[in-house]
């Protein structure tokens, strides 16, 4: 498994040591760049999980990469792709929204079968067609929590998707999975997220606190923490 070197934290990101703060919406992208998505990281699978803020963070990451001129593939599983947030972030960074919107290619999956089909059958060809290096999966597990799908089938589909993601991660593709905690999943499916995290090169935990949205990363050597203050988060 590839390891990702942590970038040193710098302003405007507030850390546990308190050496900086996110002061305006455009800073959020810089914070993400420093925390989750460094500009030139090794490829691999990153999992952002926890509070529902992960979806917004995932979209922020997509915008950041798109503004850097990258083509981003965005797979929406939780059906909450918000093009207006893209526009706001682009404007906050003095970039024409349409330019950013054109760089992000979206496909929405409404069922787990569609999501798995997207990942296993469609993603590789889309990566090639759009010459993309970045893939954001927003809510890849959420469709698997559908009670109408039997546990066994959900588990099989999850394994299939995980294998495909691992395979892509080895192909020099940057994959960011944004997944919230299952609100109502059967016992058999509650483990999907921890398995996904265990297979990720980096697993970042997202929590909502009094101060705002916090990103924690625990690895063998160290633990890291970044905060988006509530005042900024609410303006996104």
């Amino acid at each position: 498994m590839a390891t990702v070197a942590q970038q040193p934290l710098a302003s405007p990101v507030e850390t546990q040591q308190g050496n900086g703060a996110v002061g305006k919406p455009s800073d959020v992208l810089a914070m993400l760049r420093q925390s989750t998505l460094p500009a030139a990281p090794p490829a691999g699978l990153i999992v952002l999980s926890g509070h529902a803020a992960v979806y917004r963070l995932g979209l922020c990451a997509a915008v950041d990469r798109a503004m850097a001129g990258e083509t981003v593939l965005y797979l929406a599983g939780a059906n909450i792709f918000d093009p207006f947030l893209v526009g706001r972030l682009a404007r906050a960074n003095r970039v024409t929204p349409s330019r950013v919107l054109q760089q992000i290619h979206v496909s929405r999956a409404f069922t787990c079968h569609q999501m798995v089909r997207l990942v296993t059958d469609c993603l590789a060809s889309a990566i090639q067609r759009y010459a993309a290096r970045w893939v954001i999966l927003s809510g890849p597990l959420e469709t698997l929590y559908d009670e109408a799908v039997p546990d066994q089938e959900a588990a099989r589909l999850f394994r299939t998707m995980l294998l495909a993601l691992q395979h892509l991660a080895q192909q020099n593709i940057h994959i960011l999975c944004a997944s919230s905690l299952p609100a109502k999943a059967s016992y058999a499916r509650r483990g999907f997220l921890s398995i996904l995290r265990a297979h990720a090169h980096r697993a970042i935990d997202v929590r909502e606190t009094e101060e705002g949205v916090r990103l924690y990363e625990q690895d063998t050597a160290d633990s890291k923490c970044w905060t988006v203050p509530r005042s900024v988060w609410n303006r996104l």
């Binding site: 893209v86 349409s98 919107l101 054109q102 979206v106 069922t111 569609q114 469609c122 889309a126």
Partner: peptide, 16 residues
């Protein structure tokens, strides 16, 4: 048995 055909990829601008 299950609907599997996903939406085709398109730009977010097109989606909007």
């Amino acid at each position: 048995h299950r609907k599997q055909e996903p939406e085709s990829f398109r730009s977010a601008l097109d989606l909007l």
